[in-house]
């Protein structure tokens, strides 16, 4: 089937969301692991940042892949949300959810919040415009100076709560959309999604919290 027809189908768009979701989950796993280098010491994380620059092809390859993934994920989600809204033109006067989780019901607005956070995060720690004392390729300095401000750390903590919720439903939903379903794996896919949704955001918030508590300075 040509991609146009595939993309034209609601399931096709969902598959695109699932596949780009795998790319993004894979990336944040690498990201959170690298972040924890900050607890090893300034030289570990600064050295890691410098080492990324030694392979510009890889660096830009990953950046392009991520950008394409985010764009496809957001475009598909937006189109599907518009279709879904049109599918119920008259709202129920009373509607009581029976089975859905708060995580699954907040995917759309939670996703918008994460997208806004992503823009802020890149301006903050990658390009530096949103940082008052940014030094290129000095992540230890950039991170510790930023998170000493309580409300900056607060933005990150709130964003990681949103990320946890998005991952809790999104990671599980990915299996469902790709048809990875079998009585032998169904419990494991729920466990996997829960572990990702808890471990990744915890790893991320450990840094601003450590800075706020004075463990990193």
């Amino acid at each position: 089937m040509p991609f146009g027809r595939f993309w034209g189908s609601t399931i096709g768009k969902k598959v695109v969301m699932a596949v780009t979701g795998i790319v993004l989950v894979g990336y944040i796993l690498a990201h959170v692991t690298a972040n924890l280098l900050i607890f090893v010491g300034p030289s570990a994380i600064d050295g890691y940042a410098a080492s990324l620059r030694t392979l510009p092809v890889l660096l830009w390859g990953v950046r392009v892949l991520l950008l394409v993934s985010v764009v496809l994920h957001v475009v598909a989600a937006t189109q599907l949300a518009v279709l879904a809204r049109a599918a119920r033109p008259t709202a129920y006067q009373r509607f009581v959810p029976q089975a859905s989780s708060s995580a699954s019901r907040t995917m759309r607005w939670g996703g918008v919040a994460l997208l806004l956070f992503l823009v802020y995060h890149i301006l903050h720690f990658t390009t530096g415009q949103a940082h008052s004392d940014f030094i290129h390729l000095a992540p230890y300095h950039n991170i510790t100076t930023a998170f000493r401000v309580w409300w900056v750390a607060g933005i990150y903590v709130v964003a990681m709560v949103a990320l946890a919720m998005h991952l809790y439903h999104g990671t599980w939903s990915m299996f469902q959309t790709l048809g990875i379903e079998h009585e032998r794996v169904n419990a494991a896919r729920r466990r996997f999604a829960t572990i990702i949704a808890v471990a990744v955001p915890l790893g991320f918030v450990s840094v601003p919290i450590a800075v706020l508590l004075g463990a990193l300075r």
Partner: peptide, 30 residues
């Protein structure tokens, strides 16, 4: 509309059909 895998349907179904069948449809479609 499209499916967002939230599971309200299987709870409402008078025959309690599981959303596992939706994963199966996605697999067949793919």
């Amino acid at each position: 509309g499209n499916c967002t895998n939230i599971g309200e349907c299987q709870e409402a179904c008078p025959k309690l059909i599981s959303i596992d069948v939706i994963a199966r449809m996605n697999r067949d479609f793919l």
